[in-house]
Structure formats: C-alpha cells, structure tokens
Amino acid sequence: MNKYFEGIKIQVLSAYQFRFNTVTNLFFWNLNIIAAFMFWMVIFQQNDIVGQYNRQEMLTFILLIKVTSMFAFHMICIQISQLIKEGGLSYHLLLPQNFFLQLYYKTFGSKIVDLFLALILFTLIMPVIGILQGVSIDFSKIGYFIIAIIIGSIISYLIGVIVGILAFFVQEVFSIIWIVLVVINFLSGQFIPLDLFPDRISTIVTLLPFSSFGFFPARILIGGLNTTDILRYFIVYLGWCGILLLFSHWLWKQGLKKYTSVGA
C-alpha cells in the first residue's frame, strides 16, 4: 500500500514545488465562486425563495458544490486517453503496481492540497466582501458527507476511466471527452441545483451516478435530506459503483487487446 501513498506524497511535493501554478489556480477557483455567489445574491435581492432554496441555502449549496467538485475525478479521462494515444501507457503497464490505483491516489493527493489551500484562501477572501455570513452548514451530517465524497470520487473516477479507455477504440477521443464533460457538469448540478429541474426530470437525474459527485454531497450538508433518504441514495450509488467497476474492467480488457505501441 505504501507505494500508492507515495503517489499522494509526490503530488503534495509537486504542488509545493510549483507554488505559483497552485496558488494562481486556487485564486481563480475562489473568483469563480465569488462570481456565482454574486449572481445568486442578486437573484435573492429580488426573490425570497427560488424553488426550495432560500438565500442562505443557495449560497451554502454553491460553496459545497465547488468543494465537492474538487473530489470529482472524471477529468482523469484526459490523462488516460493521452497515455493510450501517445504510447506512454506501455511504461505504466510494466510497473509493479496497479495502474488505476496509482492514478487514483495521485489524483487524490493533488486534490487534498487543492482543498486545503482553497479553503485557506476562501476563509481569507470571503469575509472581506461579506459573503461568508450567508453560508450555513449542517455539521451533524458531516460523517455522511465524507462518505458521500468518497463514493462520489470513486464513481467519478470510474466514469473518467471508462471515457479515457475509449481512446483504445476511437480516433477522435478528445472531442468525445469534451462532450461527456459538458454532460457531466450539467447532470452533477454544477450549472444549477438538480432540484430546480422540473419534478420528473429531477427525480431521474438525482438517481444517475453523476449527482453523486456534486449535488448529493452538497444537499446532505445543507440539511435537505433525512437519514433514510441518505442511506437510500448510498445504496443506489454503491450499485452504480459496482456496475461501473465491472464495465470499466471489461472495457479495459477489450482495449488492451487492441493496444499497440512502439518504443516508449
């Protein structure tokens, strides 16, 4: 297991080594949140309630969806498809470790650094413009939130793996990746909360795997779900985990049969 934790360590050191890159990225991550906050604050100046959300719940939702999106690992598809297309995968296949576990831990490591620094910056910037007072978190559900984040990160990772593996079969994989990323962002609740969708669509969309790494964890901490609902969703998402794991495993095996590379 140590070799995988080394991956986390390397990412932390790398973030420190390239401090400018890390800090700039996080500064703009904060700016992104501020823009979203301002948009909704203006809306709530004109309206007390939007859907089921009051001002405080919406601002909390925006903050939480940005935090949870940090643990959405579907972007890994770009790295995997690049390795396949450029032949770099051959090197990883020769290493005495599981390629996907190693990649997961490395991604996890970089996200931990991001989250830590982002929250420091966030707590420094937000009080200055008086936005933080609008946020209210239900800390009694923090345990469920952490479990949801872990399940969400696994599901998003598996989706990323499946999309990345498509590079074995499809020539123009990068265009497909961008299409999938737009769909994922929308269906995970990054654009607007999923419960602002019409009722029937909202029910279907929240049961899809995409809501597990955006909307669902955020909704837990806002306090909109009771324990029974949370457990029911956990079962659904664990089911998705199983399905995606089996499918990615099968797809990987099929892809390796097609894979060829020279040199590396």
Partner: peptide, 30 residues
C-alpha cells in the same frame, strides 16, 4: 518567469464564467 503554468488555463474558464453574466450583478457588491 514560472516554469509550470498549465493551470493558468483555468483562468480562461473563470473569465468566461464572469463575462456571461450581466455587469449589474457585480456593480452592487464590488
């Protein structure tokens, strides 16, 4: 000046997300 600037790419998406909203939104707070 800096070697690793890959993540500056994110700035572009932030700029896009800011400009696609009416400027009146920012006038009140900032």
């Amino acid at each position: 000046i800096f070697i690793q600037v890959d993540r500056l790419e994110e700035i572009y998406y932030t700029i896009m997300s800011i400009i696609e909203k009416p400027r009146e939104i920012y006038a009140g707070v900032l």
